[in-house]
């Protein structure tokens, strides 16, 4: 590329167009406001998840409307529903396929603890197989609760030392 601009020193003429910030703030700002969820809808909580994504509650207001059904393209797995032992391996594999950085929301009683399914067939909390960032109570939780969890997760992401993590990676 040919350019006439050879200045590499500080140019006082463009002073008004420069923003000075911290790497952490910039990275975390980008991450929090565009968090693409992986909808792991396994039971009735998934209906509330759909409601949250629809016009009345509109998860797009929080930058998380791009539900990706490919783990490669998503940042935040929302485990919405009962995880059976038969399904647990698939949930973990999908989590493993998500690119870093990644977060997990355990939506509802079943995903958080097994809920009312004290059973030989049900995983007693998805935190036994994947690290969970935010738990939501409720059976199923209201859409507002999911939005609140998303905001909690965003607050958590804002506190992360992302620049240091980049250097380490």
């Amino acid at each position: 590329m040919v350019t006439t601009n050879t200045e590499i020193a500080y140019n006082s003429k463009i002073e008004g167009e420069v923003i000075v910030s911290r790497m952490d703030s910039v990275i975390n700002w980008i991450r929090t406001n565009s968090m693409w969820p992986m909808p792991m809808g396994l039971a009735c909580c998934a209906i509330e998840l759909m409601g949250t994504a629809s016009s009345r509650f509109d998860i797009a207001r929080f930058g998380a409307e791009v539900m990706r059904f490919s783990p490669r393209q998503s940042d935040c797995m929302i485990v919405a529903g009962t995880v059976t032992y038969k399904m647990a391996s698939a949930v973990r594999r999908i989590y493993d396929q998500m690119a870093e950085p990644k977060w997990v929301i355990a939506m509802g009683a079943c995903a958080s603890t097994g809920g009312m399914y004290r059973s030989y067939a049900t995983l007693q909390g998805v935190d036994r197989i994947v690290p969970v960032d935010v738990y939501i109570s409720g059976c199923p939780p209201r859409p507002e609760a999911l939005l609140d969890a998303l905001m909690k997760l965003q607050a958590k992401v804002r506190r992360e030392p992302s620049a240091a993590n980049l250097r380490r990676a």
Binding site: K86, S89, L123, I129
Partner: peptide, 28 residues
């Protein structure tokens, strides 16, 4: 309550340390 059993996927069990556990009703 169920019986303690290995997970269906040995690889996932080795990675997570999770097992199929007995889940007593705990007075439910």
């Amino acid at each position: 309550a169920g019986i303690d059993t290995p997970l269906p996927d040995a690889e996932i069990m080795a990675e997570t340390g999770a097992r199929v556990i007995a889940a007593p009703m705990a007075g439910g």
